[in-house]
């Protein structure tokens, strides 16, 4: 390891990785809490304009991350409406922008998972005397495979993006080598800027390992959720 990173401080790599994990996990966690009920509600109901809503959500998957970053910056800047909260250039701002980026992905993929659940299962749960909440739980359990995939896709989108966290986070690391708003991705841009491509690649490899780890946890969750 030491050989690959050259003069790169291990402490620095670890703290950058922690910021990456913390921000993306918080963003995806919050996003899942918000997205799942909405996906269930849309999946269960039939209303005029449902197609339009679905289209809007699907379009959201293609939001350019720098534009999201810019909009979040305008809101959080001192000159903006939420400036007095002092959130700009903090990890919280990064969580907000990644939340915006991950939500359409999680919502859209879990919506199709929910819609894919056989209508008969819903009817059966309802017939067995379940409340709508019980029916929802049954559907989530049935659709768990797709929902876990949705969360993983959202996580991949969040942890690998660089545009918005660079804009709203500011890529701040303290002089002692602890990262504040520096993630692995923004650290890579910094290395590339200085022409230290090998170090950038090494940091990229760390990111890849993290994503691999998260996906391993995801597939473990899918298998375990199967219960058999």
């Amino acid at each position: 390891m030491v050989g690959i990173f050259g003069d790169l401080n291990t402490q620095y790599v670890i703290s950058t990785a922690i910021v990456s994990l913390y921000v993306s996990t918080a963003a995806v966690g919050l996003s899942t809490l918000a997205s799942l009920p909405i996906a269930l509600a849309i999946g269960f109901s039939d209303f005029r304009g449902k197609n339009a809503v679905t289209t809007v959500i699907n379009t959201g998957m293609g939001f350019p991350s720098v534009v999201v970053g810019l909009v979040v910056l305008l809101f959080l800047s001192n000159a903006g409406p939420f400036g007095s909260l002092g959130l700009l250039f903090t990890p919280k701002a990064m969580i907000i922008s990644q939340f915006v980026l991950a939500t359409p992905v999680i919502m859209s993929v879990s919506l199709s998972a929910v819609e894919g659940v056989d209508q008969r299962i819903r009817d059966a749960a309802f017939a067995a005397g379940g409340t709508s909440r019980d029916v929802g739980l049954v559907v989530v359990k049935e659709a768990r495979y797709g929902i876990v995939t949705a969360i993983l896709a959202g996580y991949g989108r969040a942890i690998s993006e660089v545009g918005s966290v660079l804009v709203v986070g500011g890529n701040i690391a303290f002089a002692d080598g602890t990262a504040f708003t520096r993630t692995l991705t923004t650290a890579v841009t910094l290395e590339a800027r200085q022409g230290r491509y090998e170090v950038g690649i090494a940091l990229g490899a760390v990111l890849l390992v993290l994503v691999l780890g998260v996906n391993a946890i995801g597939s473990w969750a899918r298998r375990r959720g199967g219960g058999t």
């Binding site: 800047s77 400036g83 250039f89 890529n171």
Partner: peptide, 19 residues
């Protein structure tokens, strides 16, 4: 110290916004 490195124009803009 939280140092944000930008171009001078962007740094001045960040300062002008009180950020």
């Amino acid at each position: 110290v939280e140092a944000i490195s930008q171009g001078t124009g962007a740094a001045i803009e960040t300062g002008s916004n009180g950020d």
